[in-house]
């Protein structure tokens, strides 16, 4: 279980070190054994939050606990796998050398077969003897995924796992998440692609401008979304009947609904846009 309590992170930017909040007073509990989707537009603070959870970035304020350990304590990461956004590896080393090294950093003994299994699951086994700097983006992503699931950790944190993957890769990755979900892993993944949300998540958290604006179970949020979309469709239909009041703004909304095919996507999109303006 991951608990964030009133977590704030500011970065000092520029010559004078002016504070700029990346995450603001975030309180969030990622429940054990569930898949939580973490959504938000670019620059919302998703990666910053994730980096605080995995101990890369120190929170400026507040507490983060993983299984009871403080996030900066290495013990918090005893049972945690992390897939960074845009992972990369040093030059001149083969995929298999890299993953063997990371397997040695775990507190468990990992044998060769386990490494091979992880590589196979991530679909990169065939390229294990190639130098990692010659990998394509998707291959690098897969190697990082294999590393993050090594040792079968209870908690898995994926930062934009689907970015950089082709449609087949995305499908495969989602299947992997489904498999992990069946095995009751705690999964926390970030994305800005709303279409990924529904099938995978038990819970959805939405972050905009560093603030958490939604954190609910999938059924509750779907119900809300349906009500919202219905109301929206009705109102735009009403507008259509009276052509003189049609504004270009509403026209755009109408097209959007056609573009996103589920009420949930429309709802989340509108939610993000509304909050982004503030």
């Amino acid at each position: 279980m991951i608990e964030l309590k009133n977590t704030t992170k500011y970065f000092r930017i520029g010559f004078f070190g002016i504070k700029k909040n990346a995450v603001e007073n975030l309180s969030l509990t990622v429940e054990a054994g569930k898949v939580t989707g973490f959504f938000g537009p670019n620059g919302a603070g998703k990666s910053t939050t994730i980096k605080m959870i995995v101990g890369l970035v120190h929170p400026s304020n507040g507490i983060i606990k993983i299984n009871g350990y403080d996030s900066m304590d290495y013990k918090a990461r005893l049972n945690l796998g992390y897939l960074p956004e845009n992972p990369s590896f040093p030059r001149g080393l083969k995929g298999i050398e890299i993953i063997s090294y990371y397997s040695k950093l775990l507190n468990k003994k990992i044998d060769k077969n386990e490494i091979y299994d992880a590589l196979k699951l991530a679909g990169i086994f065939y390229a294990k003897d190639i130098h990692a700097h010659k990998y394509s983006k998707g291959m690098t992503q897969r190697l990082a995924l294999a590393i993050s699931i090594l040792g079968d950790p209870e908690i898995l944190i994926f930062d934009e796992p689907l970015s950089g993957l082709d449609p087949i890769g995305r499908k495969e990755f989602k299947d992997i998440i489904f498999k992990l979900k069946e095995r009751r892993k705690t999964i926390f993944f970030s994305s800005h692609v709303l279409a990924d949300s529904k099938e995978l998540c038990d819970k959805i958290a939405v972050l905009v401008n560093g603030r958490l604006i939604k954190n609910e179970g999938i059924t509750a949020i779907e119900k809300e979304a349906e009500g919202y979309t219905e109301a929206k469709l009705n109102s735009s239909k009403n507008h259509e009947r009276t052509p003189d009041t049609t504004k270009p703004e509403q026209d755009k909304d109408y097209r959007l609904i056609a573009e996103y095919n589920t009420p949930l996507e429309v709802y989340l999109y509108d939610l993000m846009r509304k909050n982004k303006k503030n």
Binding site: G55, Y74, Y82, N86, P87, S88, L105
Partner: peptide, 17 residues
């Protein structure tokens, strides 16, 4: 470089100090 290229992300998020 390890920080710059972000290859450090995977090593220090393992259970190591």
């Amino acid at each position: 470089d390890d920080i710059e290229k972000k290859s450090i992300f995977l090593s220090i998020t393992r259970p190591v100090k």
